[in-house]
């Protein structure tokens, strides 16, 4: 009987993203079920479930590491936001605030960039979130992507709390619903970038 090969990337992804745990028995079971006719979609969903379940197990076993990952992410996020603000001042106002003083820059600092300001700021936002994800995993390498996933949940919860406050104030107005759609869209993109950054910082099981 010819054996079907399950998607190899899925198993490798599990080992790479949750390196602290033993996966062989689980992967063997999935392989066996795949031989019995389970689909590729089933296999990938099982791997996704395994990443989530095993990350949760990692968090329960190492709550301090998870807390440290969240603090790392929040500090990096604060730095990113202040960098954003400074860059926006430079690109639009031709200067920046240093302490309580305004430092003006020559006109050519903001002239060519103002036209593509949105693109530049978007690029910085994308790069910043990838770097935050990368930093969290790099500083907590033994836990793979767990730290990033916990950080994603925490910032989503904080933003959801903020949105709920706005919803109460605006009485769920149509404007708020537009804001909500934008916020959800932004949050999903942020998650993708953070996880991508975290993935870049992981190493394969062989080199870990």
């Amino acid at each position: 009987m010819r054996l079907r090969q399950p998607p190899r990337f899925a198993g490798r992804l599990l080992k790479r993203l949750v390196p602290a745990q033993e996966h062989d028995a689980l992967l063997g079971d999935l392989h066996e079920e795949y031989q019995r006719g389970r689909s590729v979609a089933w296999y990938c969903l099982q791997i996704l479930a395994a990443i989530v379940v095993r990350s949760l197990k990692d968090v329960r076993a190492n709550p301090l590491a998870a807390a440290r990952a969240v603090i790392t992410g929040l500090l990096a996020q604060m730095f990113l936001l202040s960098l954003f603000s400074s860059l926006e001042n430079i690109l639009t106002g031709g200067g920046y605030i240093w302490g309580s003083r305004w430092i003006g820059l020559p006109w050519y600092w903001h002239w060519p960039y103002a036209r593509s300001l949105y693109t530049v700021m978007q690029g910085i936002w994308i790069a910043g979130n990838v770097i935050i994800g990368w930093l969290i995993v790099r500083l907590h390498r033994a836990h793979g992507l767990t730290g990033v996933l916990v950080y994603c949940c925490v910032i989503s919860a904080l933003r959801a709390a903020g949105l709920l406050q706005i919803a109460r104030i605006t009485h769920w107005s149509p404007d708020f619903l537009i804001l909500l759609i934008g916020a959800v869209n932004g949050q999903i993109r942020e998650w993708i970038l953070l996880i991508a950054g975290g993935y870049l910082a992981t190493r394969t099981a062989k080199t870990a």
Binding site: L26, E33, Q46, V53
Partner: peptide, 21 residues
């Protein structure tokens, strides 16, 4: 083992089971 246990639970509860859980 994992496969037989998951299968038994699925047959009893009639709900899909994640092997990782």
């Amino acid at each position: 083992y994992g496969v037989t246990i998951a299968r038994e639970i699925e047959e009893t509860t009639r709900r899909p089971v994640a092997l990782a859980s």
